[in-house]
Design a protein around this nucleic acid. Structure first.
Lengths: 208, 208
DNA sequence: TGAATATCGTACGGCCAGGTACCGTTGTCA
DNA sequence: TGACAACGGTACCTGGCCGTACGATATTCA
């Protein structure tokens, strides 16, 4: 049931740099438990056993359950922000760039980890705040900045960058995120790509 | 703390027709608890006390916790479907009709009761299934049928009614539902109306 | 008026998870 | 090699809620 073959459970003082790896093992185990059982049924003991760690270690590292979940959110958000930045970084054809971003966004929002975290956040104001702060409120500005650049370059006509981002989101995501959050199967890669292309095409038609 | 002034807690055999009223009292109390405390912290005892009923009555009526939550979902869905049907029923100007529907949808999806129910459904596959079946899967066809009528009348050009509904949803709702689910304040009536009008306008531009 | 009925109130069992404490063990570093 | 640091394992306490049982009570109906 463990994610990888059981490594020997180590004890004693860790080697330098080993701590980060053990940290990651715990986070990974926590994600696995979260995706499998849902936030409500995730238990500290379950995570500890899956990670080959002890409960007390988890508490010493993360303080409490909320701290662990927060760490998971930030871990996830870091990756997401990096990917968004990368997708919008290259100076290829704007349309293609946006489609790539849109497909990435769809992938992200239907990814089991993100889905599980979003579900968890819905049941806890503290988690929701963390999720908004470290996720949405960080990714939004990156995209808006890119849209402003497209406006400056005359590619698109953007009045309100924030509104434009929300429009793009609506056109690309539609009700997909909600449906997946409610348990429907996420779109496959082909449908996902098509949805991204349709959304971006409509966005261009509306923003010219 | 009770929603209304405490009525005398009645006992004994109920008068004919009184049962429905008591039923509604319990459902209302359950909604109040759900909105206040969130699904995770809703307790059967809390609901019972708020409704001026006993726990055993709740269990005898709804079987268990899940049954009560399911009853709440269906109660909410009934009202929603009726409102959607009404909004799309009159044969006024299609654009105005759609704006009315869009505003109603926004209102519905940001209504505290719906929000709380959606949050609850995210933590329980059984509830999610009930929510999709009695809500989304019932409202969708009504709207699609209306869109088909607009296509037949030559008002719009609709190829795929289901896709058209999802597009309309995306244009009107954008990320509003997710944001509210995550705890942000819902848009006020003015912003809500504007959002509905913008969404429908874009929908017309894209579907002509 | 008497019987049946629906409900209240309360108490109880069972379960399970969060968080804490303690000790033994293992590895590292000087 | 010895002290020290970090961790695993276990046991424990606490609290809360679900679901059930049972007697008491009030109300309707015949």
């Amino acid at each position: 049931m463990a994610t990888t073959a059981d490594p020997p459970r180590r004890r004693g003082r860790p080697r330098a740099g080993e701590r980060e790896e053990r940290h990651r093992r715990v986070i990974d185990a926590a994600f696995a438990e979260l995706v499998e059982h849902g936030a409500e049924r995730v238990t500290m003991l379950g995570i500890a056993e899956r990670a080959g760690a002890s409960k007390e270690t988890l508490y010493s590292w993360f303080g409490n359950r909320l701290g662990l979940l927060r760490a998971m959110i930030e871990e996830n958000a870091d990756g997401a922000a990096a990917r968004v930045r990368a997708a919008l970084g290259d100076d290829a054809d704007p349309r293609e760039t946006l489609v790539g971003f849109a497909a990435g966004l769809l992938t992200l929002l239907t990814d089991p980890r993100s889905v599980a975290l979003n579900r968890a956040a819905m049941t806890s104001p503290e988690l929701a705040e963390t999720l908004l702060a470290s996720g949405r409120h960080r990714v939004g500005p990156i995209v808006e900045e890119y849209l402003v650049r497209l406006d400056a370059d005359g590619v698109l006509s953007i009045d309100d960058p924030a509104a434009a981002f929300r429009l793009l989101y609506g056109l690309v995501i539609q009700d997909t995120q909600i449906r997946v959050l409610l348990g429907e199967a996420p779109p496959g890669p082909v449908e996902l790509r098509a949805q991204a292309e349709r959304g971006v095409a409509a966005f261009f038609r509306l923003s010219s």
